[in-house]
Amino acid sequence: MGVDLKNLRRVAVASAAVTTVLQSATAVIALKKDRRDYADGVWGPGLAAIAITSAALGSGNRLRRWSLAAAVTAWSVRLERQMLSRLGRHDEEDPRYTEFLEGASTAGVVGKVFVTQGLSQLLVSAPVQVAAACGLPRSARRWLFPVGIAVMAGGAIIEALADQQKDRFQQRDDDDKPDVLDTGLWGWSRHPNYFGDSLVWDGAFVAAAASAPATWTIPAPALMSYLLVYATGAKRTERRMQSRPGYRDYQRRVSLFFPWPPTGD
């Protein structure tokens, strides 16, 4: 089915406004506290706010737009709990931000971090916004909607389980603790949490693509995967982990991103 362009414009404008408010408020607090890494704390809530705004203002299929909003919000709540816990445990800024923003002016920080993140949120959530302004077709294509929601749920479970396994590993304080976590999901992927996160947004695209116009939003999940692998996720973490004992061997044995059986010694 087609997209209601007038309604889509309304959803897009409102989503942009909500994103601007959240990013601006976070930027003010982050700059005042000299904690640019507070930006991590608004990533999930920002995407949830866009999904809820889209569901509330959209004129498309009611069940789908609110299912997407519920799925994104549930994912966001769990992620936000983890982010707030991580930010609260440290009195100093995440070294990744310090390194990335070294020598940057206030305007530079706002542009590199908060404007860039806001634009990324709007692009990543494009399938959710378009789906909110589309009806569901009567053809078999409509089944992409429940399939996509199932993929989102599966991705969220993988991400949550990976984070739980990582937290348990970090909390261990015994002589038998290995240098590198290479069991559970971490024995199949070096970054299973990022992989699960990518599945959430792949699923959102699939659910939206039940309506033909949303197919054009495929750059959205591609962007999310790029961010998770190259920009702010796996590759950047890999650079920081290079010097850890046993990590190079771990890299040799275990897949970077997509889960795969580990190779033998």
Rank of each mutant, 00 (worst) to 15 (best):
L63K: 13
R142Q: 13
L5Y: 14
W66N: 11
G148F: 01
T53W: 02
D34V: 14
D265I: 13
D4S: 04
C134H: 09
L223K: 11
K177Y: 13
M241S: 12
G44Y: 08
F205Q: 07
W201C: 10
M241F: 12
R240Y: 09
A207I: 01
V206E: 06
G118S: 04
T263N: 15
A210Q: 03
R168C: 15
L87R: 11
S225H: 15
G233H: 02
I52F: 14
E102N: 14
A51R: 00
D174H: 05
V72N: 02
L136N: 15
R10W: 03
G108E: 04
L181C: 05
I157A: 13
G187N: 00
A132V: 11
L185K: 04
S24H: 05
V130P: 13
A49Q: 03
P245N: 10
G88L: 01
S76F: 00
V200S: 02
R64M: 15
P262M: 10
L47V: 11
M241Q: 14
M241H: 11
A132L: 10
A12W: 08
R252K: 09
A231S: 09
Y226P: 08
T98Q: 08
R86G: 00
I52Y: 02
V3F: 05
L101T: 03
N7E: 13
T73F: 13
V18T: 03
D176Q: 10
L199Q: 00
Q242S: 10
D34M: 11
A51K: 03
M152N: 06
A104R: 09
L123N: 07
A56M: 09
L228P: 01
L228Y: 04
R64A: 06
A212E: 15
A207P: 07
A160H: 03
G46D: 00
W186F: 05
A74V: 14
A55W: 07
D175A: 14
A150L: 12
G148E: 05
L8R: 08
L5R: 10
R62V: 11
A207T: 00
Q170C: 13
G196F: 04
D175H: 11
A131W: 02
A231L: 12
L227W: 00
K235P: 04
G60I: 01
A209C: 12
A74Y: 01
L223P: 02
L119Y: 02
K33G: 08
I52M: 03
E80L: 12
F205G: 09
R142K: 09
L223A: 07
R168A: 14
V77Y: 07
R244I: 04
G264D: 15
S198E: 06
A162C: 03
R62F: 15
M83D: 07
L84A: 06
L123Q: 10
G246V: 01
P146L: 02
Q165V: 08
